[in-house]
């Protein structure tokens, strides 16, 4: 785990791919040099640290969570967090799925989880990160699309 102190923003990246951890950190650092960055590549071993960060978050905290990881996958991490927080994240914590999956089922599963605020397809672009931090989040549009699709299916039925 790497950690860089900052007062305003904490970025947490949970991914077994070291390159993703490095690149996301670099992108974050180029946008906000003072942001705190926490990277976890083995969530099964580091789950308690992750839970501690979630529970004790005092600043705006953005978590990027990969799905496909060998020891504990993203869904299992979400389950543990949901269990630890009784399904309710602190208001200053947002979890975004960051996955290479282009499987619609994964996307729907992510959006159906109340802890997940958005879904980013890899590769994460610096522009995506900037929009997330400072502008309208494109992933929310994706969410709208998914929600609309589900709503319409219900309407038609």
């Amino acid at each position: 785990m790497t950690d860089t102190p900052s007062n305003d923003l904490r970025l947490v990246v949970i991914d077994d791919d070291q390159i993703v951890l490095t690149l996301t950190s670099l992108m974050m650092r180029s946008i906000d040099k003072g942001a705190q960055i926490s990277c976890f590549s083995k969530p099964a071993r580091e789950i308690n640290d992750i839970l501690t960060l979630v529970a004790n978050a005092t600043q705006r905290t953005i978590i990027f969570l990969d799905i496909n990881m060998p020891d504990m996958n993203g869904w299992e991490v979400l389950d543990v967090i949901a269990s630890a927080t009784s399904g309710k994240l602190p208001t200053n914590v947002r979890i975004y799925v960051l996955s290479s999956s282009i499987n619609t089922a994964d996307k729907l599963k992510a959006y159906s989880n109340p802890l997940v605020s958005g879904f980013f397809e890899k590769p994460l672009l610096q522009e995506d990160l900037r929009n997330l931090l400072f502008g309208e989040h494109v992933a929310s549009m994706d969410r709208l699309w998914v929600e609309n699709t589900e709503r319409r299916k219900t309407d038609i039925r």
């Binding site: 390159i19 993703v20 690149l23 290479s100 999956s101 994964d106 890899k122 994460l124 610096q126």
Partner: peptide
């Protein structure tokens, strides 16, 4: 399909991400 969606695409996105970063 799972392999395509996850294992195969994951390294591809890594290459894309690194390429983007270096280009920038």
């Amino acid at each position: 399909s799972q392999i395509i969606s996850h294992q195969l695409r994951a390294p591809v996105t890594t290459v894309m991400a690194v390429t983007n970063w270096i280009a920038g």
